[in-house]
Design a binder for these strands. Structure first.
Lengths: 194, 194
DNA sequence: GTCTATATGTTGATAGAC
DNA sequence: GTCTATCAACATATAGAC
């Protein structure tokens, strides 16, 4: 073996996993390179061997989340069928991806726009939202969603509901496999008893 | 007149209004006292004349949001009547308060927990959530909400939906007066056409 | 109530050895 | 691939004049 210690050397990916955890705990701006070095167990300058700086770590993390979300829109069930069914598929899958890639999506949803990287992330998020809004519009036009629903508002409330999972879900929590279904039922059928 | 310039002197409240706007634009950690001084048009040390420091500005801002939210729970319509009606009232009023006190509530919802002040804010938020969760439980027990709804999950999705308004609503936006109603319909009746 | 000047600590990033 | 040592810039906060 060629390694000089007991712990395997970091790769960009394994360093990213540690980084994203700390970013989510303390916030991106509230996290110093010193915080990251302590959490990773290596020195600050060692981090700079893997990445150009703090902002690159953010870019890699939110890029991973965005790629996973956009992939949903290309799935067969999102591109063919009744508009309402396609929309419901996207909502369920968005919730699933959010849970699968929880720390990365959490970080994405907290990005504010201070730096160029953050603005790029916000732009891609808006693009994703617009593509879902078009799906909502189609479903309303087809008479499959309530007629009094304003498509843009409905899209925003949908994402508000789905995205709020990052506020409280913690990995391994009981009943995770039923969450995407519960979210879809909430959004499409509501809480009220009939 | 006793003032020495054209602009009225700052009070804690008027300084807070400027501060909260900047905190929401750049994030609390991303905002420096220099940023605040530039936005307020006075020097850094003048800010310290009004408050002890940056963290006190945060405490005053989120305290205002929390007081407004807790006041809802004491309103007559929240303390008497059918559980489902009381819950629906709280949801509508939470949306209203959120829109009325938008910058303060926005800041509250973004608090992470790095400092003692932030932990205090998170604790009061949890307390508010628990009191609403009890209302949801009552409504489920009374058979007024779907039986397959887990009360804690329902509460979280409710707040996720309402709180998401801060992500996109901007003051003066068209149709604001219908928003609390639209949110309540979404949450209780869902999007699907019947 | 506001200012200029400054103290004191922390930050992101680099140099260069091993 | 990791380290120690260091830097310039920027942070929060204070002192003291007007």
């Amino acid at each position: 073996m060629a390694d000089h210690s007991t712990r395997a050397a970091y790769t960009v990916d394994s360093l990213l996993a540690v980084t994203v955890r700390v970013f989510n705990e303390r916030g991106y701006d509230g996290t110093s390179m010193e915080d990251l070095s302590r959490a990773a167990g290596i020195s600050k300058s060692s981090i700079y061997h893997h990445v150009r700086g703090k902002e690159e770590l953010l870019r890699l993390a939110v890029g991973r989340a965005l790629d996973a979300l956009f992939a949903i829109l290309d799935e067969p069930a999102a591109t063919a069928g009744r508009p309402a069914d396609r929309l419901e598929h996207v909502v369920r899958r968005t919730a699933e991806v959010l849970l699968d890639e929880l720390p990365y999506v959490t970080l994405l949803l907290r990005v504010r726009g201070n730096t160029a990287t953050e603005q790029w992330a916000l732009e891609r998020r808006r693009d994703f939202d617009h593509r879902v809004a078009a799906l909502v519009q189609d479903a309303v036009t087809a008479g499959q969603l309530r007629a009094d629903v304003e498509p843009r508002l409905a899209t925003r409330l949908l994402f508000g509901t789905v995205n709020s999972l990052v506020e409280w879900y913690r990995p391994g929590q009981r009943g995770a496999e039923h969450l995407p279904d519960a979210v879809a039922r909430f959004a499409f059928d509501g809480l009220r008893a009939r």
